[in-house]
């Protein structure tokens, strides 16, 4: 066997990559972004699982109906949030870039993540004042009764100010955290989407 001749015949019969295979390779970065985003969606499930028992414990820790009611609302909201995140995570995991219509897959994937984040932030707007009030009463009721606290206007005004301050700050912090967690990878997918849209 002459090495050079054998190599030449090998090269002549070598397979070639098709345009579709090459384009699949170009999507590797998008696949990586999707993997990372899915992981971050899983974090949300993890954090919800981590915090829910704390609110349940707090419910049993207090012996007053008002903070108990607030903690019950928060616990139920967390359980609802957990179900919501699991559903969204499963949906996110179901997207496959190997699909022939990569554009639709990326568009739907981005929409799923953005919608999840948006709904979470909206639900947060309702929950932050409840959480703040529950914490407020939890500490206050160590010093006085609920009746005394509700009869004192200064306490009610303090609570009102607290809610007015805490709610937008918490909302802003949640948006900032979501931006930190998701934006980089969503931008990667948006970039890929723009490239695909420009293709003739």
């Amino acid at each position: 066997m002459k090495i050079e001749d054998t190599w030449k015949s090998l090269s002549e019969n070598e397979e070639r990559l098709s345009g579709a295979e090459i384009r699949a390779g170009l999507n590797l970065k998008s696949e990586d972004a999707i993997r990372k985003l899915n992981k971050r969606m899983a974090w949300k499930i993890g954090f919800t699982i981590l915090f829910t028992p704390l609110y349940i414990a707090a419910f049993f820790f207090v012996d007053n109906w008002l903070p108990q009611l607030l903690f019950a609302i928060i616990t139920l909201a967390h359980i609802g949030g957990l179900i919501f995140f699991i559903q969204r995570y499963r949906k996110a995991k179901s997207f496959d870039l190997g699909d022939t219509d990569v554009r639709s897959v990326i568009e739907a994937y981005i929409a799923n993540i953005k919608e999840t984040v948006r709904q979470e932030e909206m639900a947060g707007l309702i929950l932050y004042p409840i959480a703040a009030a529950s914490g407020f009463f939890l500490s206050l009721l160590q010093k006085m009764t609920l009746e005394e606290a509700l009869a004192d206007n200064r306490i009610l005004i303090t609570l009102l100010i607290l809610l007015i301050v805490i709610t937008p700050i918490s909302h802003w912090a949640a948006r900032w955290m979501n931006k930190k967690t998701f934006k980089k990878y969503l931008d990667l997918l948006e970039d890929r989407l723009s490239q695909i849209r420009e293709e003739p």
């Binding site: 090269s11 397979e15 070639r16 990559l17 098709s18 345009g19 090459i22």
Partner: peptide, 15 residues
């Protein structure tokens, strides 16, 4: 342009 060039030279990648 890249896809076209790579298609032409993909034998290198296979090797």
């Amino acid at each position: 342009e890249f896809v076209k060039l790579l298609e032409e030279h993909s034998g290198i990648i296979y090797k």
